[in-house]
Amino acid sequence: MTASTAPLAGKTALVTGASAGIGWATAIALAHQGANLVVTARREERLRQLCAEIEALGTKAVFYAGDAAEENTASQSIALAIANFGHLDIVINNAGAGNYKNLIDTSVEEYDSLMDANMKSGFLFSRFAAPLFIEQKSGTILFISSVAGLQGIGGEAVYCASKFAQIGFAQSLDAELRKHGIKVGSICPGGVKSEFGLGRGRTEEYIRSSHMMEPQEVAEAIVFACLQPPNVRIPQMTVRHMG
Rank of each mutant, 00 (worst) to 15 (best):
E53T: 09
L57Q: 14
A129Y: 06
N93W: 05
V38W: 13
R178H: 11
A74Q: 03
N231G: 00
Y64Q: 11
V62N: 05
L198T: 02
A68N: 02
L103S: 10
A27Q: 01
I104G: 03
A61M: 11
G122D: 11
R48E: 15
G96H: 06
S121H: 00
D112L: 06
A129I: 04
A68H: 03
A81G: 14
D112G: 05
T2H: 07
Q236L: 14
F123L: 15
S113Q: 10
A148H: 08
G191Y: 06
L198S: 06
I207P: 03
A170R: 10
A157C: 09
G21I: 02
R127F: 14
Q136R: 14
V218S: 09
A3E: 11
F224M: 11
E109G: 09
G185K: 01
I54D: 14
L142G: 02
I234W: 05
D105W: 03
L114H: 03
A65H: 01
D105S: 06
H87L: 15
G122S: 07
F224C: 13
I22Q: 07
A56Q: 14
G185H: 00
S146Y: 05
A81N: 13
G66R: 03
A97Q: 09
L227T: 15
T73F: 04
P230F: 05
E45G: 08
K137W: 00
I90F: 13
R42T: 00
N36P: 09
V108H: 10
G23E: 10
V192L: 01
A3G: 02
I90M: 15
R240E: 15
V62S: 00
S113G: 02
F224A: 14
T26W: 01
G23D: 13
A117N: 03
Q136V: 05
S186D: 09
F164W: 12
S210N: 13
T238H: 00
S138G: 15
E70I: 00
L88G: 08
N118E: 09
L198W: 02
E214D: 12
S146I: 04
T59K: 02
P215C: 02
I141T: 04
L150C: 12
C226G: 13
E44A: 06
M242F: 13
A25W: 03
D105E: 13
I78R: 01
L30Y: 05
I144S: 01
Q76G: 04
A61K: 07
T238G: 09
N84H: 15
Q228D: 06
Q136G: 10
G149K: 04
L150G: 05
T203N: 01
G190Y: 08
T26I: 10
E204K: 07
P131W: 03
V158N: 11
G155W: 15
G34T: 11
G185C: 04
